[in-house]
Design a protein around this nucleic acid. Sequence first.
RNA 1: GGGUCUGUAGCUUAGUCGGUAGAGCGGCGGACUCUUAAUCCGCAGGCCAGGGGUUCGAGUCCCUUCAGGCCCGCCA
Length: 505
Amino acid sequence: MQDNPSIQFDDQRLAKRHQLAQAGVPMYPHEFRRSHTIGAIRTEFCDAGHDPLPEQVMTAGRLYGVRDHGKTFFADLRDETGRIQLYIRKDALPEGKFQTFKSSIERGDIIGVTGRVFRTKVGEISVFVDDLVLLTKTLCSLPEKFHGLTNLEKRYRQRYLDLIVNEESRETFRTRSRIISLLRNFLSGQGFLEFETPTLQPLYGGANARPFTTFHNFLGQRLYLRIAPELYLKRLVVGGFEKVFEVAKNFRNEDIDTSHNPEFSMVEIYQAYADYNDMMKLTESLISSIVKEVTGSDKLAFEENTISYDTPFQVMSMEDAVRTIGGVDIFTHDPDTLRQIGKEKGVDGVDNVHTQREMLVLFFEALVEDKLVQPTFITDFPVENSPLAKSHREKEGFVERFELFIAGMELANGFSELNDPLDQVQRFEAQEEKRRLGDEEAQMHDYDFVNALGYGMPPTGGVGIGIDRLVMLITGNTSIKEVILFPSMKREITSATEDEDSPSA
RNA sequence: GGGUCUGUAGCUUAGUCGGUAGAGCGGCGGACUCUUAAUCCGCAGGCCAGGGGUUCGAGUCCCUUCAGGCCCGCCA
């Protein structure tokens, strides 16, 4: 049976399965109608006494601890709503059931029980089992009951197993789901419409990143997995939808680390007749309301810090941030002096740039970013780095753009959207020039998009918020892999894949 | 890409100076009708991540491959 080393069924469990089959016990019945979930039993019968209540309940779940006392068993049964103890007595079960249970049903199996609720003499609410039925025989044995599964690689690769045994992990993903649903409610409540735009795109745009490339056989054409939904969502604003958003999976062909996964989730939001100030207001109210709703507090611990999500968040221009936090007043120095200062302060890349504005960005990244622990909007970026943002209404050479930093992480990025089609053409051309010079992450010239702008997009504010990082902050996880159910992992080479042509098949 | 640490039974792990690979949980057999990391007695279970080397002898030392963690670089 175990010829294929990729299959990790447990021989001892296979033997039990065989026993059950011989005895004609159904191992994978089609349904089981519960009268109560475990959580419902706990609420409804919380004041049960030592004598079993008259009412019979039917409930189901996975068996965790099984404590064998000879002619009785105590066992822990768990479903999504909670855990409850079963009290199983030989003399209470139908003829033969006890023996079947004892010999062939074990920890990890999924069973349904019929019984009556009571409280044990040490005070634990339990189900006095009158009958039980096997609902799913498991063939893989569960990790140890006390230490559980701690091996990170295994937790990520076999997330289902992590979820079975690690309540904290289950709680993290429950919270993640809740955050996304609150996000949708928040935006819908303000009149935003949710749309879905292409994931497979003939051109990629909306961010600076290397894409994944694929090929459509029928079209005979190369396609890219989107790096951002931005350019499509703005087409919707051109089309007359004034408040739109998309909860989008983005794909970026870049390295993997504790804050980057090749595919990640982002919500992008666009609002007509709004500017970047409005989008900052929207962003902070969205984030702080989700934090409060999920945790019941506006202060959260993250790493060694306590982060306050009280609004308003701090706002600082990039120039001010570099001056007050980085200690360098960029525009009082010429580029050569800045290069000198940069080298002294360990700022990378100063040899490759020549303007004060470019220096500003480098100084910001090196000296300021990771010091922004409390929620802080950094505003007004140099035009060179922001081909889709509108020029600043007051500061020459800058755009109306902001990024939100929390705990040193970039959490959101938004701007007053560029809607002047000619300006957009020039920005794309500048990007094309960068591409020609070998910048693989410069943006592609999207002619259909500029034509869309040619039909007129109202003044619009937009923002993208990283959902994975938001979940990290709210759940207190410092690795993005802890908040992505199935994080990208390198393929394992098993002996099965090496021995494709062995006679095992 | 660089550095560093890790990989031993299904899981959690011990393994000293290089000398027969040890435990707990889980499993199996036995005892036990209010336990909860149940308890007690007994048993089985290991290609020490893979490959190569040094050695009389390697889980242990060396080289290398694979996978993962962390830090740095790269990257919105």
